[in-house]
């Protein structure tokens, strides 16, 4: 398990071109949203003293109020929240498809003999596995759906208690437990389908239901090891995100952006390495 973990880190670091590619794709995907924000700030602060104030760590309060009032007349959290939510959902689905596409390429690189990045390997892997991984994702939605249904059932039970409660304390721990349960279920499903994708690439399989079944069996048989590997990679992801979000230093935050994508490569690397370990 530890061998697999370190092997994964090595794989990700030595394929820096892959990380760079993912970073560029990821930034390009976000650009359509960031550019309007950039232009909004430029146009509303240009030739005003607000631009100087905006260089501080916190937003300049009068500008923040003005931007809401002038750019979003009739602004309300309800309507804005809905627009924002739908926008994020649409972007998220697009980004998901992009990542499904890239996942084939990443795994193809890591599953190759020399485990070295090349454009040919990456793009051919991306193209070859895209529809298979899309099918796997659709199958995974059923599992995620079951996890969410279990969560909602427990939530409704807690809700009944909550509506009669005279103290929040009696509810909060149950709510947290339910959220923890949901996270565990999602992590477990996520882990299963990580392995299903790996298995698909390693076996060049086209039968996704069979690969799903094999991944379930694999995950259950190697439950502890598989969970630990997933835990390591999830932990690495989270701690990285936490570091980035807490920082107030612009340069550091931007410098850490590639780390997010390195973590993505690393996660695949860990798991390929891990499955190799288990298979061998």
């Amino acid at each position: 398990m530890f061998t697999a973990f370190f092997k994964g880190i090595l794989l990700a670091t030595k394929n820096w071109k892959l990380v760079l590619l993912l970073l560029v794709a990821s930034i390009l995907f976000s650009i359509p949203v960031v550019i309007p924000i950039f232009l909004l700030i430029v146009t509303t602060t240009a030739s005003t003293s607000a631009s100087g104030q905006m260089m501080a760590d916190n937003l300049y309060a009068p500008w923040a109020a003005d931007i809401v009032n002038q750019q979003f007349p009739g602004f309300s959290l309800e309507s804005f929240g809905l627009q924002l939510g739908v926008g994020i959902l649409i972007m998220g689905i697009g980004y998901l498809l992009l990542n499904i596409f890239f996942a084939g390429g990443i795994l193809e690189v890591f599953a190759s003999e020399d485990q070295r990045f090349s454009m040919r390997k990456f793009w051919s892997g991306s193209g070859a596995h895209f529809w298979r991984f899309t099918r796997l994702t659709l199958i995974s939605l059923v599992f995620y759906g079951v996890a969410i249904i279990i969560f909602l059932l427990v939530r409704s039970l807690i809700g009944r208690v909550e509506s009669r409660a005279e103290a929040f304390e009696s509810v909060v721990y149950k709510t947290w437990f339910n959220l923890f349960l949901l996270m565990l279920m999602i992590a477990f499903v996520n882990m299963i389908f990580d392995y299903a994708r790996i298995s698909t690439v390693l076996n060049d399989s086209r039968k996704m239901i069979r690969e799903t079944w094999r991944a379930i069996v694999f995950s259950i048989k190697n439950f502890l090891g598989a969970c630990c590997i997933s835990g390591f990679s999830a932990g690495a992801d989270c701690s990285h995100s936490q570091d980035v979000e807490q920082t107030q230093f612009l340069c550091l935050r931007d410098a850490l952006l590639p780390g997010q994508d390195a973590a993505k490569g690393g996660r695949a690397g860990f798991q390929v390495a891990s499955q190799h370990c288990f298979i061998r």
Binding site: S30, V34, I41, T45, L59, M91, Y95, N190, V244, L250
Partner: peptide, 23 residues
């Protein structure tokens, strides 16, 4: 100012989108 805050937005958008890659 625009660079400072739009790069911040870039980070947050990336972080939110990252959540979708769970699938």
């Amino acid at each position: 100012a625009a660079s400072r805050w739009s790069s911040g937005a870039l980070f947050w958008i990336q972080s939110i989108l990252q959540a979708f890659t769970l699938l």
